[in-house]
Write a protein that binds this DNA or RNA. Structure first.
Length: 454
DNA sequence: TCTGGGGTCCTAGGACCC
DNA sequence: TCTGGGGTCCTAGGACCC
């Protein structure tokens, strides 16, 4: 917690719905609901006009329609949301280099890095009013709610206090007094399950939370959350504003109008989703080692299965093959309402290639610099000159003397064509007992490095 | 005919290594 | 013959956020 109110939290009001009302004047002043419009859709954002009828985020669209039948129900235009968000984030970055976006419609701004004469309450208040005006200008009329306080935690709570179109500056020294009467659910990270556990322990307000010893809290809700709650209940929060947080996973999922029962249809969906994940990874220059499959059953029980490759991939066929393998191990009788594919454990080959290039620049010998594995697979021959390494991979020759790379783990064998003469090809993976593995061949040298589909 | 989609973080148990 | 810890990686599930 700082001794000045120097962290700003900005939240665009009813963002998706507001963009729709901006772009379609006939919707202004009327209830607008953005979200899934199908039979299994849920509300993403409701305009304030719709909220008056009790429509809320995360409510099923079915229930929203029952409460507010005359609202406009829209499925959302994410390109418009993204570009509007980019305009706001650009404005914030013009004000301080330290901007941490939390989503399309929210960000923290560190005012210590902004060009302000001082951080007195009057100064930051005037600054925030000016900022809100400029948000309206760059977005074509959207309003934002802003909170400013001595920590991220209090700034976020403050921005919520006078929504919509509000500003609250928490005077340093008043944080605990503001916080203590509030319900524990104002604390980010305290959702329905934690509220219930705390309630059973007789804890409802932040004040009551602050009276519980840390050890007791840890017993109630676990180590990490218990420690965090103990601090936040005292308004203790020293978290920095962190720009440029790295992506940790990429995923695509879909809920289907009617439960799926046909395995071949499920496989086709998983393959399509793998392709979409791969497309997005390539667009972002990402590559990852762990492929996950998510399956939500007819009764809403959710299963996940994952497998980790020896080296990162962004190849659609590899992700698809692995996802299908994971699907094959699941009993989907009864029906499936949701399928999803994701990749995590992200790294990027761009960086590895950079290291390889640096090695060459330094006049390093052809020998790779990374440590060789302790044991070579029995098929292994001499390592191709200049081949680069990935963790857990061995370089071997195929029967034609051409170099390729393989790795294996947890029943999955990974093959990736790579020599001194050719750029790395995409990673292909097979279940270890899949005969297709033994039919696989690296591409002929005159190919473009893309192994043919078997 | 309840209950999205895209994420992050945490926990717990087992394997494996030293 | 019995019995260590600690650290890391991986997997599955769950809570939570917008």
């Amino acid at each position: 917690m700082r001794d000045r109110a120097s962290i700003l939290h900005l939240d665009l009001d009813a963002f998706f719905a507001a963009v729709e009302q901006r772009d379609k004047p006939s919707l202004r002043g009327k209830p607008v609901v953005v979200g899934g419009t199908g039979g299994r859709g849920v509300v993403s954002t409701a305009s304030y006009e719709a909220r008056r009828f009790g429509v809320r985020s995360a409510m099923s669209t079915r229930e929203a329609r029952a409460r507010c039948p005359h609202a406009a129900y829209l499925s959302g235009r994410f390109e418009a949301y993204r570009s509007t968000s980019a305009a706001v984030m650009g404005l914030l970055r013009s004000v301080s280099p330290l901007v941490e976006p939390l989503s399309l419609d929210e960000a923290f701004v560190d005012l210590e890095q902004a060009d302000l004469p001082d951080l007195e309450v009057a100064t930051v208040t005037a600054f925030a009013e000016d900022l809100r005006t400029r948000v309206r200008e760059v977005t074509g009329g959207l309003t934002a709610s802003v909170g400013i306080a001595s920590s991220k935690f209090l700034a976020k709570i403050a921005s919520d206090l006078r929504k919509p179109d509000g500003l609250v500056v928490v005077e340093p020294g008043t944080e605990v007094a503001l916080l203590h009467p509030m319900h524990v659910s104002v604390i980010p990270g305290v959702g329905p399950a934690t509220v219930e556990r705390l309630k059973r322990a007789g804890i409802h307000t932040v004040r009551e939370l602050a009276q519980v010893g840390e050890d007791e809290l840890v017993r109630q809700v676990g180590r990490s959350l218990g420690h965090g709650l103990h601090q936040l209940a005292r308004a203790e929060d020293d978290r920095a504003v962190v720009p440029d947080r790295e992506t940790k996973s990429v995923s695509v999922e879909g809920t289907y109008e009617h439960d799926l029962t046909d395995r071949r249809q499920m496989e086709a969906i998983v393959v399509r989703q793998a392709g979409e994940v791969a497309r997005r990874m390539r667009a972002s220059g990402l590559s990852g080692r762990t492929v996950s499959l998510k399956v939500r059953m007819y009764d809403f029980t959710t299963l996940s299965r994952s497998a980790t490759l020896p080296a990162p991939t962004e190849d659609a066929a590899t992700i698809a093959r692995l996802a299908r393998t994971l699907l094959a191990d699941l009993d989907t009788s009864g029906g499936v309402r949701l399928l999803g594919v994701g990749v995590s454990g992200l790294a990027d080959w761009v960086q590895e290639d950079l290291f390889a290039a640096l090695d060459e620049d330094e006049g390093a010998e052809d020998e790779p610099t990374a440590a060789p594995p302790a044991e070579q697979p029995e098929e292994a021959g001499a390592r191709p000159r200049g081949a680069t390494w990935a963790p857990g991979m061995d370089v071997v020759h195929d029967e034609h003397g051409r170099g390729w790379v393989w790795g294996s783990g947890r029943g999955v064998v990974t093959v990736r064509f790579e020599t001194a003469e050719t750029p790395p090809g995409p990673v292909r993976s097979f279940p270890a007992d899949d005969p297709a593995l033994h039919r696989w061949h690296p591409p002929a040298p005159q190919d473009d490095g893309q192994p043919a589909e078997q």
